[in-house]
Structure formats: C-alpha cells, structure tokens
Amino acid sequence: MLIDADGYTYCHEHLHIDLSAQKGDIDCRLDQYALIKAEMDALVERGVFNIIEVTNSFMGRNPQFIESLISDTGINILLATGYYIEGFFPPALYTKTARDISQEMIREIVVGIEGSSLKASVIGEVGSSENAFTDAEQKVFEAAAMAHYETGRPISTHQSMSTMGKQQIELLQRFGVDMERVTVGHCDLKDNLDDILWLLDQGCHIQFDTIGKNSYYPDSRRIDMLKALSERGRLDQVMLSMDITRRSHLKQNGGLGFCYLMDKFVPQLLASGISQAEIDMMLKHTPYKVFQ
C-alpha cells in the first residue's frame, strides 16, 4: 500500500499491539476496535490520512484488524515487517541467519502478510536495547539491510530511551543502506540535540514520535528541541507521531488520544514560532518522501 500524498501522516504508531505477556499488564494489549475506529475517524476529519503502523509479527500484529480499520474508516495504514528488540524475540530467531530473517521480511513485502490481503510497506520497528545493541538485534539490522536492498522499502528503527541511534546508523551505513530511506525512532526522550544533529548530518530522518508522553520527557522540551532544529533549518528531516501502545492512551479510556498531536501539540508548535510550512513538512511532505 502506498502513502496518500494529500494528507498528514503519523510516522510511528500501533493500532493493534500486544506486549501484555512480556510486561505483565493487560493495559499493554491495545485491541479495542470500536474505540480505535472512533479515533481514526476523528483523525481523518483533521486531515490525517496515513498511519505508519510499526507493529511487527511478534508484537501482536493483527492484519485482519487493520483491514477492518481501513475498510471502516478510509484511513491509509502501512504495515511493517521485522523483529522488535531483545526480550521480545521468538526463540527461533536465535538459530536463524540474517539471510533467513531477511527472506521472511522480503516475503511479507513482496508476497504479502499471511492471512490477509495486505503487504508490508516498512521494515520496522527494528531496535536496540537501552544503552546496548545485542548480537541478536544487530543480526536483525543486517537482515533489515538485506531486505531494504532487495525491495527498496524504508527502515524504521526503535531507540530505547533515545540511546544507540548512532550505533544503529553506523551499522546500516556499513551495510550500504541508503540513508534517505532510514528513519530513526524515539529521538525525543532526552536532551540529545548533539546526537540528533549527528544523525541528521548522516542524511537519515528522525522521529519525534512519543509526543504526549510527558512522564518520559515533557512536550515543552520537545518543542524547545524542535525550535532549535528549526533555527538550524533542519526540520525537513524530522517527522512526528505519538507511539500509542496502551489501552489507557485512548481518549475514551482517559488518555490523550490520537488527536492530541493535531489538537494540542501542533497549536503549541505554532505558538512557539514554528511555521505552518514546517508543520506541513514534518507531517506531510517528509513522510511522503520517506514512505512512498
């Protein structure tokens, strides 16, 4: 499925995810169809036409759930293929080679995701642990590079608490990945402007994709960092999202809901001096360039 150029894009979301077994918390099973459908309807009303859904198969991906959302709301959802991080890998992954893993990814991109009519459009979210990049995680990155080379599809990464992004990029560079087709996730969870500028200098894209998660890092400081990037003319490599993963994140369950980015965060950006043209770039033009 291709991205809709006419609308805004959330670059890193989960519409059906289940990490409840690993985390021992039913709140980590995001699967309430009626509530999620209502939020997608509300996003479409606000001009958000695309969701990059980065749940891969061992995070509770449910392509039938996504097919229904697409049919019932008209929103455009791009699915992902890959493996997440250490602690969420199936045991079989440790005995597979990078080539084996890449063939799985390529199959889901070219042939389709089993049990559905959908194909994966993004290689992701592939990640590293906090302050560590394990051998198994690096093997997944090598597989992602192979799948990217074979299919041309973009790679979306996961940084645990905004760590190891430089190591991720250095590894992908070593494998010859086109940096313009790489987007580094979760860059907005600590004061790391120097790290971000280094990433941007490599030619990749970055994501401020945990907007609204103020218990991790306050939105006021996210805005300060985006302002600093704006002053340097670097927002053309930045994309925005919320990374909603829990039932309690949904509006009807007392959370901020998916519309928070559009209804609250974007007005704060405008008030800070970031222009509408820059917002359109982060939410429309750059996602189209990366994910088309």
Rank of each mutant, 00 (worst) to 15 (best):
V54G: 11
N56W: 10
S57R: 13
F58A: 04
M59E: 13
M59N: 15
G60W: 03
G60P: 05
P63H: 07
Q64D: 14
I66E: 11
I66C: 08
E67Q: 13
S68L: 12
L69M: 14
G74Q: 06
N76A: 03
N76C: 08
L78R: 05
L79A: 08
L79G: 09
L79Y: 11
L79E: 10
G82S: 06
Y83V: 03
Y84E: 07
I85Y: 09
E86I: 11
F88W: 11
F88N: 10
F89M: 13
P91R: 14
A92M: 15
L93E: 05
T95M: 13
T95Q: 15
K96A: 07
K96H: 06
T97D: 00
T97W: 01
A98Q: 03
D100Y: 06
I101D: 03
I101A: 03
I101V: 12
I101G: 09
S102A: 15
S102K: 06
I106M: 01
I106L: 07
I106F: 00
I109M: 13
I109K: 01
I109H: 02
V110K: 13
V110D: 14
V111C: 07
G112R: 02
I113D: 00
E114V: 05
E114T: 08
E114H: 07
G115A: 12
S117G: 08
L118W: 00
L118E: 02
K119D: 06
A120Y: 01
S121L: 02
S121P: 10
V122E: 01
G124T: 08
S128Y: 05
S128F: 11
A132V: 12
E137V: 01
K139H: 00
K139L: 08
